[in-house]
């Protein structure tokens, strides 16, 4: 499964990408919405993990634009706020929502809940 991680916290997102790779995902990361759009135009991703609050283009706008580029792409929102407002926003967008900090198993379970993990080559433990 090809996963694109988008979060302005570079250290966080780079380590998360490594941990997902160790678990068989093909994970790339970028720190800006504009870079995510470029990445989606250049490569095919099954899923994008989007930080809701980022400077410039936030996760909500990015989701809409990515969906226009890659109609089959699925999304998971990530946020450090964890507010009721964010939760409701994620639900209104029809996307799962996960609050930082989280256990990687929780993320993988969330991805699995989208029904995307089994059909995309996610391998065994790294």
């Amino acid at each position: 499964m090809r996963v694109l991680l988008v979060d302005d916290e570079e250290r966080f997102v780079s380590v998360l990408a490594k941990r997902l790779r160790l678990r068989g995902f093909q994970a790339d990361f970028v720190c800006k919405g504009e870079d995510a759009l470029r990445a989606a135009e250049e490569g095919r991703y099954d899923l994008a993990l989007l930080d809701i609050k980022m400077p410039g283009m936030g996760g909500l706008e990015l989701r809409r634009r990515l969906a226009g580029i890659a109609p089959g792409m699925r999304f998971v929102f990530v946020t450090g706020h964890g507010s009721q407002g964010d939760y409701e926003t994620g639900r209104a967008e029809g996307c799962p929502y996960i609050a930082k900090p989280f256990e990687i198993e929780e993320l993988i379970e969330t991805i699995g809940g989208l029904g995307a993990a089994s059909d995309s080559g996610k391998g065994g433990e790294g």
């Binding site: 916290e9 966080f12 380590v15 941990r19 450090g80 706020h81 964890g82 930082k100 990687i104």
Partner: peptide
């Protein structure tokens, strides 16, 4: 603070 702790959590996890 959550962002900083999330990085700590992921680094410890790695």
């Amino acid at each position: 603070l959550k962002n900083a702790l999330a990085t700590v959590s992921e680094s410890a996890g790695l």
